[in-house]
Simulated assay, not measured.
Amino acid sequence: IILIEKNGEVVFEKEQDECADCDPYDIFKQVSAREIFEFSCEVELDKIRFIRQAAILNRALSNEGLRENYGLHIGRTLRKQVGSGLMSDDLLSKIMIETTAASDARMGGATLPAMSNSGSGNQGIAATMPVVVVADYLNVSEEKRLRALFLSHLMAIYIHSKLPKLSALCAVTTASMGSCAGIAYLLTGKFETVSMGICSMIGDISGIICDGASNSCAMKVSTSVASGYKSVLMAMDETHVTGNEGIVEHDLDRTIDNLCSIASKSMHHIDRQVIEIMVSKPCP
């Protein structure tokens, strides 16, 4: 809170510090995706133990989303279809179900907090739960789990730092690129897997629009995290969307820049179009 007024009278005004106008994302202009990866692997563990809270808070949301029907209850629906045999009880299904259930609960009004990323609960969920599910499946050490979570969140912030403050690009997609990095670290520990995975995601789900926070956000969460896991599996088999295709380049940072350039420039008028569509819809 920076200002409180009552009947035109200033009751409280916070003093502005010297860095009030500083851009907290400036540091990310000086680093690369590889440096983000290397820092996450090498940083002193005690300095990143706080990231455990992301797993605790967002897992609680996931459990709540699987307990009751919230929003579109996609997580519960997918779990039901595993029981019916229409979906496999595999790691991809677990990632989609447990991550989407957290978003169902978040968007459906559950009175539980989410650990956010870049100011968004759904982004925090997308950057957290896929890594948690894979870490549980592999039964990794606490250190590896924490480093994977930290890498996921830091990579998500790194990519998001290249977006404008308001964007028509659904940022759940970029947060899921963070969890793609975290999963790649858990499965191979190699930056090359991270790079190939994120490039494939940008070749796959770039351009998904944000049409306002709503229950359907959970659909975009499920789509994005599925793309992330699929892209890691491809990378492990030495295949990915290459620099010969579309907006993807042979360098990860340039590929990320291309995606964010489209979000900053080409998608500039989408918000206005979305609002026009929403306000002109007939009442049900």
Rank of each mutant, 00 (worst) to 15 (best):
I2T: 15
L3V: 01
G8Q: 02
V10S: 12
V11T: 03
V11Q: 08
F12E: 15
E13C: 07
E15R: 07
C22R: 09
D26Y: 09
F28M: 03
K29M: 01
Q30L: 12
V31Q: 03
V31T: 15
S32I: 04
R34V: 13
R34S: 14
E35I: 11
F39T: 14
S40T: 05
E42W: 00
V43C: 10
E44L: 03
D46L: 04
K47N: 14
K47P: 04
I51D: 12
I51A: 06
A54W: 11
L57N: 15
N58Y: 02
A60E: 14
A60I: 10
S62G: 14
R67Q: 14
E68I: 06
E68N: 14
G71Y: 01
G71N: 10
H73A: 11
G75A: 05
R79W: 08
R79F: 00
K80I: 07
V82E: 04
S84A: 10
G85H: 03
G85P: 12
S93A: 15
E98G: 07
T99F: 01
T99I: 09
S103R: 03
A105Q: 08
G109H: 00
G109E: 12
A110W: 02
T111C: 10
T111N: 13
A114I: 01
N117Q: 00
G119D: 00
G119Q: 08
S120Y: 08
G121F: 04
N122K: 00
N122F: 00
N122P: 10
G124V: 01
A126H: 08
T128C: 08
P130M: 08
P130H: 07
P130C: 12
V134P: 04
D136Q: 02
D136I: 01
E143A: 07
L146T: 11
R147N: 10
L151R: 05
S152E: 10
H153G: 08
A156V: 06
I159K: 14
I159S: 11
S161E: 06
S161G: 15
L163I: 10
L166G: 13
G178P: 07
A181S: 15
I183P: 04
Y185W: 06
T188Y: 01
G189C: 08
F191Y: 15
M196F: 10
M196C: 13
M196G: 15
I198Y: 05
C199R: 15
I202N: 11
G203P: 05
D204L: 04
G207I: 04
I209C: 02
C210V: 01
G212E: 13
S216L: 15
V221F: 02
S222K: 09
T223S: 15
S224R: 10
S224K: 02
A226P: 00
A226D: 01
A226E: 12
A226W: 00
S227N: 12
Y229I: 09
Y229C: 07
K230M: 14
V232D: 11
L233K: 15
M236C: 04
E238F: 03
T239F: 05
T239I: 14
H240D: 04
V241M: 05
V241A: 13
T242F: 03
T242I: 02
T242H: 03
G243P: 06
G243I: 12
N244C: 07
G246L: 11
E249D: 02
D251F: 08
L252R: 06
L252S: 05
D253S: 00
L259F: 01
A263C: 09
H269S: 09
D271L: 09
R272Y: 08
Q273W: 06
Q273E: 10
P282Q: 14
P282D: 06
C283A: 11
P284W: 09
